[in-house]
């Protein structure tokens, strides 16, 4: 089984979250490729069984510019059977908390087998570690069922 975590980060919060998710997957016996958004061209979505997408949100809960290509790749590739999850960090004081996670969620639900979403407020805290664990569990159990 192959897994990738494709992410972008501006302050380091989302990359911290991506690393936690990678560690949790490793503990569960799955070595996931950690891929920053600017290295996305080097991979093919079809090579993977699981892809987790990580993004911060910008402005009015929008998808950051550097994630647009990735968003479109899911739309144009044939990835109906790919199990996906989306995670992100944001500030809940804004009206569209982690809005980019929601936008990815709606798209991934249509084009892939979306298993789970995760929102974290700014830098991950203690309690978020357990949520990351659940995030991985959900992805893994979904693959077991789906494939």
């Amino acid at each position: 089984m192959k897994a990738a975590i494709i992410y972008t980060s501006v302050t380091g919060n989302t990359s911290a979250l991506a690393e936690i998710i990678q560690e949790k997957m490793e503990v569960k016996g799955l070595a996931a490729d950690l891929i920053p958004a600017d290295e996305f061209q080097k991979i093919h979505l079809n090579e993977y069984d699981i892809v987790a997408v990580g993004t911060y949100s910008w402005d009015n809960g929008e998808i950051p510019l550097e994630m647009e290509e990735i968003y479109e790749a899911f739309e144009s590739a044939n990835v109906k059977g790919l199990t996906t999850g989306v995670f992100g960090t944001g500030d809940s004081f804004y009206p569209y908390y982690c809005g980019a996670v929601d936008l990815f969620r709606d798209m991934l639900y249509v084009h892939t087998n979306l298993a789970v979403t995760l929102k974290v407020e700014l830098t991950p805290q203690e309690e978020d570690l357990a949520r990351c664990e659940k995030f991985c569990d959900r992805l893994l159990s979904e693959v077991a069922v789906f494939s």
Binding site: D102, L103, R105, D106, M107, Y109, V110, L114, A115, V116, T117, L118, K119, R131, K134, F135, R138
Partner: peptide
Amino acid sequence: TYTKVSSSNGFDEL
């Protein structure tokens, strides 16, 4: 482009 979906559509929102 896409309709808003939620955990009632069969995935988990953590």
